[in-house]
């Protein structure tokens, strides 16, 4: 059982590295320019020329998937970092602050959480305007409560540990305690949460692009490709299948990595 888990973990890591390399080196690895249109070869199926076929404008699907991984990873990275930053600051302030600070901050975070994710992201994006940057901001804000709650809960439990008390007794100040004792000890759980949030962020980016609120055409994005493919499901199923698979595997990989890491850092499951 453990061996299959390990194998899955390795496959997931490998897959993500593959996507990362593809996104980084897209101009070198993709066979065609993703925005080049060629109406002669519209809707041609997978062949040796076009490994994953072409779409309704005759653009190469493989190249579009490779380039499409860029917004996916950028959105994931930036929005998770943003959520992490906001969430950690709020969580630490709530966990270490007075009762009142804690209550107010958590009320704020809970009110963000109480909205359905997609609905809230659409609202935020329609306020800020369409486009990638706005999407990243929106997702970052939406996921900050997840980190805030996690960091707060961990902080509350870590601050009663003997080593934090001892550090105070040794004369350390609050900042030193936060950086030397609290953050290193909540890092493990936060990393796990990052991986899981990354997966969700990828899905939301795809959904928003699908709805036409995220990446703007002709720039490629997996969500956008799915949107285009929607009208030609019978005629050119490859247009939907391949970006869909890429998205699914990407999300699955992040979740597998998150699960495996959370098992590894949980001392009760260790050894």
């Amino acid at each position: 059982m453990n061996k299959t888990r390990n194998l899955l973990f390795k496959i997931a890591v490998f897959f993500l590295i593959l996507i990362g390399v593809a996104a980084f080196a897209a101009p070198f690895v993709s066979p065609y320019n993703p925005t080049d249109q060629n109406t002669d070869i519209r809707f041609s199926g997978p062949s040796s020329d076009h490994l994953l076929g072409t779409d309704n404008f005759g653009r190469d699907v493989l190249s579009r998937i490779i380039y499409g991984s860029r917004p996916v990873l950028i959105v994931g990275l930036v929005s998770v970092s943003l959520a992490l930053l906001i969430g950690t600051i709020v969580g630490l302030a709530a966990g270490l602050g007075r009762n009142m600070t804690d209550n107010i901050l958590m009320l704020l975070m809970d009110s963000i959480l109480s909205f359905p994710t997609i609905l809230l992201s659409i609202t935020v994006v329609s306020f800020l305007g369409y486009g990638l940057v706005q999407v990243m901001l929106a997702i970052g804000i939406i996921f900050s409560p997840v980190f805030a709650r996690l960091v707060r809960a961990e902080t509350l439990s870590i601050k009663t540990e003997g080593y934090v008390e001892a550090s105070r007794a040794l004369g350390s100040g609050t900042l030193k305690i936060i950086f030397k004792h609290i953050i290193p000890n909540l890092l493990g759980k936060v990393v796990v949460q990052c991986s899981i949030t990354f997966a969700t962020a990828v899905v939301i980016e795809a959904s928003l692009s699908f709805l036409g609120l995220g990446t703007q055409p002709p720039e490629p994005s997996w969500g956008l490709m799915l949107k285009d493919a929607r009208n030609y499901l019978y005629q050119a199923p490859w247009m939907a299948i391949f970006p869909g698979l890429a998205l699914a595997f990407c999300v699955l990989s992040f979740n597998i990595i998150g699960d495996t890491l959370s098992e590894r850092i949980n001392p009760r499951l260790m050894k």
Partner: peptide, 16 residues
């Protein structure tokens, strides 16, 4: 003034 607690396991930062 220094203090030594009951539980040595929680008295030391595991990451240090």
């Amino acid at each position: 003034i220094q203090i030594v607690f009951q539980d040595p396991n929680s008295s030391l930062n595991p990451k240090m």
